[in-house]
Design a protein around this nucleic acid. Structure first.
Length: 630
RNA sequence: GGGCCCGUAGCUCAGUGGAUAGAGCGCCGGCCUUCGGAGCCGGAGGUCACGGGUUCGACUCCCGUCGGGCCCGCCA
């Protein structure tokens, strides 16, 4: 509630003096009061009066009411072109803020907006033939943060990871094993995802130059169509093994999953058949009889405002096989709960938080009811905007509405030219290079985390000569994850991230570790406090600027979470967390706590405690682990 | 050719109709006998790509131009 309570009170005041549907917003500068109304500008348009006159008039009437002193809002003043600025009785307001934090604790700022509605989130979805690179890392971090956000706002969540185990990107690796002397087992010490990623890059180059290898690849592709073939069996083995390592990386980043959907199962479980029947019945698809697509089943895009400018999309090729988009439509239909048919599962394993992960399995006996999700979010980078729009269009043909299915697109992560050169890239002119699995040009999530971790380890061991290795490792790992998650969340999703390892390995300034450091400082104060019940409820003394500033930013949390959810603006979490910590650090510099006189000390302790609560609520949604010491 | 996204301080980016355009890095100068200097304070640094328009008010909305990126396959 907090600042929203002020807004509410200001609105009521405006209404009481006759302003209908008043506009109240948080002031951009405390010099303009705590909240501000811009309604006089609107009113001026409807009448012939000047905004400033209206503002003065309204503020005067409000002042008559606030004079009584029984509200949090203390006064209203007209300002320059036509604003009405509301000031606050801070002694009273401080108590309100702190009481709310005290009562709501780890729920402070969050809401029950979802009220049990289900949201299904797909993220990660990396082909199981390589390790996760930074682009995948951005996906996992965005997806997992969405999961945390929805959960915090009262939604039931289902997190799914699409495992594209189809033959196409696997066949290369089969060729390497069959013909180029690569062993199925990796050289000792090499992770299996790293191994396959390396093999994949090396063999793709070889295939490009050899007709013979290409025809072998084609043959293997055919064999992989048959689930009972020896190649399919090997394929299952390889993908399982790679997946288990990919999942370790995801867990390392702090992510968790409910379901692993194997792409091959979309066909095995006849989800496509049911979807296709529905598509035919709805009239959304047709079989082309002439032209270049003769013999293919197409989805009709002619009534789509944008896609109609291009050709219709092939769903079933003339040889009867399915395109990627076709399977994606069926998958989306399943995700939104449109289909009668459903998967069965086996238990694949457990998340670090102890919850089970299910994997689709024809012979599986486990069932999972995903319900009919109100929201389905698919986290995929912007290059899939068009195919995702095709999927949306297909769904809207099936349901009559397009609501509920959201493509959460984000820009890719590229490498700075400096980093690319370090990886042996020697061509081109630009300032960045796109990562490519096929070219073997990428930085893995684990490599970057290890780099960050080594920096953090240096710092931590410099400060804590008494810590043992386990302790140092544990703390450094959490710092590394915080740094990476923060940096990925910080940037607008519409902007490409050009990753540069020397810049990214910074642990100072506007970073995840800054939050952790600030939290640790606050913990020291509470820890050294002589008061048994640290941060207990006490009276509010006269406030100094730094105390007011901290209280103010703390009170914004409910409005921030609401904004993040409504606008799906994850970066707002980082700017807020940063401003929160900046305010605390200023408070820390200018307001001694432990050495202050008892009344002030106890209030500052309560404020410090409140700060740690709000910061940990925000950090928890960001997936950043705070640290008592670092 | 069609469609989408981006262009703000030297660099990396916030700011999505309101009052003096903000952070971080880098640079210059300060602050540890006081709760952790992974911090704090101050300074220099901006024709918000450019040109029109809408509005009481535009970095923000609309149109155009110029740069940069992405997408348009019986690939996934």
């Amino acid at each position: 509630m907090s600042v929203k309570r002020l807004i509410h009170e200001a609105k009521e005041l405006m209404e009481r003096v006759g302003v209908r549907d008043p506009r109240i917003e948080i002031s951009k500068d405390p010099a303009f009061g705590e909240v501000t109304s811009t309604s006089p500008f609107e009113l001026a348009r409807k009448t012939s009066r000047k905004p400033i006159e209206i503002a003065e008039d309204v503020a005067g009437k409000i002042r008559e009411i606030t004079k009584a002193g029984d509200l949090i809002i203390a006064d209203a003043m007209a300002a320059k072109p036509g604003f009405i600025n509301f000031t606050v009785n801070w002694l009273k307001y401080a108590r309100v803020i702190l009481d709310e934090i005290r009562e709501e604790g780890e729920r402070y700022g969050l809401s029950d907006h979802g009220r049990g509605a289900t949201v299904l989130i797909e993220h990660t979805s990396v082909n199981p033939n390589k390790p996760l690179h930074l682009g995948h890392g951005r996906n996992v971090i965005i997806g997992d943060t969405l999961y945390r956000l929805f959960r915090a706002m009262g939604y039931r969540t289902v997190v799914v990871n699409y495992i594209d185990d189809s033959g196409n990107q696997m066949a290369d690796i089969h060729v390497a094993f069959k013909r180029l002397g690569y062993k199925v087992d990796p050289p000792s010490g090499e992770r299996y995802d790293e191994y396959c990623g390396r093999v994949y890059a090396e063999v793709s180059r070889a295939i490009e130059e050899s007709q013979d290898l290409l025809s072998l690849k084609r043959r293997i592709l055919g064999e992989l169509e048959d689930p009972t073939s020896a190649s399919s069996e090997l394929n299952k083995l390889i993908t399982d093994r790679v997946l288990s390592f990919q999942m370790r990386t995801c867990w390392r980043l702090g992510a968790r999953y409910d379901i692993l959907n194997r792409e091959s199962d979309i066909v095995s479980f006849k989800l496509w058949d049911e979807t296709f029947t529905m598509l035919v019945r709805s009239g959304a698809v047709y079989k082309a009889t002439e032209g270049k697509d003769a013999g293919c089943w197409m989805i009709n895009l002619r009534d789509h405002p944008v896609l109609s400018k291009e050709d219709d999309e092939v769903l079933i090729r003339s040889d009867g096989t399915l395109t990627y988009v076709a399977r994606d439509v069926a998958y989306a239909a399943w995700k939104t709960g449109l289909l009668e048919k459903d998967f069965t599962y086996r238990v694949w394993g457990k998340n670090p938080d102890g919850t089970e992960i299910l994997e689709t399995d024809l012979r599986g006996e486990v069932r999972f009811d995903r319900g009919r999700p109100e929201i389905v979010m698919t986290v995929v980078d912007v290059r899939q905007r068009r195919p995702q729009e095709v999927v949306r269009h297909a769904l809207s043909k099936l349901t009559g509405t397009s609501s509920g299915y959201v493509h959460f697109g984000y820009e890719v992560v590229a490498l700075s030219i400096e980093d690319a050169r370090k990886l042996g890239f020697n061509e081109g002119e630009g300032e960045f290079v796109h990562m490519s699995g096929r070219a073997g040009l990428y930085l893995t999530v684990d490599a970057v985390l290890d780099l960050l971790k080594s920096k953090a380890l240096q710092e931590a061991s410099r400060r804590h000569s008494d810590w043992d290795n386990d302790k140092l490792e544990e703390v450094a790992e959490k710092i590394a994850v915080a740094a990476l998650r923060y940096s990925m969340l910080k940037q607008d999703t519409d902007k490409m991230i050009v990753f540069d390892s020397s810049e990214a390995s910074r642990l100072v300034g506007d970073t995840g570790p800054y939050l952790q450091y600030t939290y640790a400082r606050a913990c020291r104060i509470l820890e050294k406090s002589p008061v048994r019940e640290r941060g207990e409820r006490v009276g509010v003394p006269e406030l100094v600027k730094q105390e007011r500033d901290l209280l103010r930013v703390v009170s914004y949390a409910p409005a921030v979470f609401e904004e993040v959810l409504n606008l799906m603006l994850l970066k707002r979490l980082t700017t807020y967390a940063h401003s929160l910590c900046a305010a605390f650090n200023e408070f820390y510099e200018y307001c001694p706590v432990l050495t202050a006189e008892a009344e002030v000390r106890d209030f500052r302790l309560e404020l410090t405690k409140a700060f740690t609560q709000v910061l940990s609520n925000v950090a928890s949604v960001m997936g950043i682990t705070l640290l008592n010491e670092m």
